[in-house]
């Protein structure tokens, strides 16, 4: 289905912000929460279109891998984090939403 999925976007942002907030408590780079929010605004609609395939169908798991890679690069480039914590943040936050989506959808 190719409808705009605002509810899924809100849920994803809420979960990922909460996970990142919990993971970086006490040692959070400036603007990180804003960067997570903007990264999700950028990646979620693209992921949604790649999973539902109106133009290009990639499938669920390849899309999630692509999103984790993209968000890792964003955390490195925009937040100034090193590669390891960037990948760790992207994997954990996206992993949480993947688990929740598999459990509840």
């Amino acid at each position: 289905m190719i409808d705009s999925n605002a509810s899924a976007l809100l849920a994803t942002i809420a979960v990922e912000l909460a996970v990142v907030a919990a993971m970086t408590r006490g040692n959070r780079p400036k603007d990180l929460m804003l960067i997570v929010l903007c990264a999700n605004l950028l990646t979620h609609p693209i992921a949604s279109s790649l999973v539902h395939g109106p133009w290009l169908y990639l499938g669920f798991w390849p899309t999630e891998m692509l999103i984790i890679a993209a968000e890792s690069i964003i955390y490195i480039q925009v937040a100034g984090l090193n590669i390891k914590p960037s990948c760790w943040l992207a994997m954990t936050s996206n992993g949480s939403t993947i688990v929740l989506s598999l459990l509840f959808l």
Binding site: S4, C38, P45
Partner: peptide, 14 residues
């Protein structure tokens, strides 16, 4: 339109 707007907003904000 909404998705494209969000992508553009996210890109500019980043």
């Amino acid at each position: 339109a909404m998705e494209l707007g969000l992508v553009a907003f996210g890109l500019v904000a980043l």
